[in-house]
Amino acid sequence: MTTANTHTFDAAPAIEARGLTKSYGGRTAVADLSFAVHAGRVTGFLGPNGAGKSTTMRLLLGLERPEAGEALIEGRPYAALIAPMTRVGALLDAKAFHKGRSARGHLLALARSQALPDARVDAVLDLVGLSSVARKRAGGFSLGMAQRLGIAAALLGDPRIVLLDEPVNGLDPQGILWIRTLMKQLAAEGRAVLVSSHLMNEMAVTADHLLVIGQGRLLADCPTAEFIERHTDPAVYAATPQVARPALLEEAFMRLTAGAAEYSAH
């Protein structure tokens, strides 16, 4: 990387949302959402179903246009990036590939669009453990294999920023452990990792920092430990040994988002 790029990297947060607003047919999906995601840690993006997590991710990646506000990647809109997949890697929905194409063909097409060497495709296939099925039609993949292919695409350009929307969905325990280790390692290498999930226990052991949204609004933006301390019943918090406190995340989350759930049973 050139000095100029490194400078930009240091000066601006990896990801920044400024007043993002988006609605669909009069229903507000995201309202005046502002936050920053920094390099070197896993940032968990939490919220009940329908809270606007996926919409926010699509806004960050320029797949949708906000009605107000802006989304910046290292200080620039996604659409202004050169070879964007070498800056940002994203897993949005599993199976976002053509079912008739092989995993290798899918990744080769993406690699060539970014002027990446073909050898990188075999490297990421190996990384996610799909080398043995690389030439099979991806339409026959299980959900777990599809997620792995999505991760391979996200890491193809060796990006400094990684966005993962519900990456552990459909994965078996080994797969979940693999993703968890991978995310921590990506962060340890100095990358910014933004991961959405509604699995609290998973986030409690993975995320260093939390962004919590409800009904399209930011409810919390703080370190995971602080979030648990602030939003758990003080008596329960005090009675819980420190090593077990991550398990309180679910309760803390439920207390915070009680009024913000899109769908709830009464």
Binding site: A83, T86, A109, L110, R112, S113, L116, R120, L186, E189
Partner: peptide
């Protein structure tokens, strides 16, 4: 594999030709 090294950088600044190569790869696969 995750380490940043020259093998993972684009070989040049990608342009329209690279998009055509990409689409050609999709088309033929």
């Amino acid at each position: 594999l995750l380490r940043t090294d020259s093998a993972v950088r684009p070989t040049h600044r990608p342009g329209f030709t690279d998009l055509v190569r990409s689409e050609w790869t999709k088309f033929t696969s």
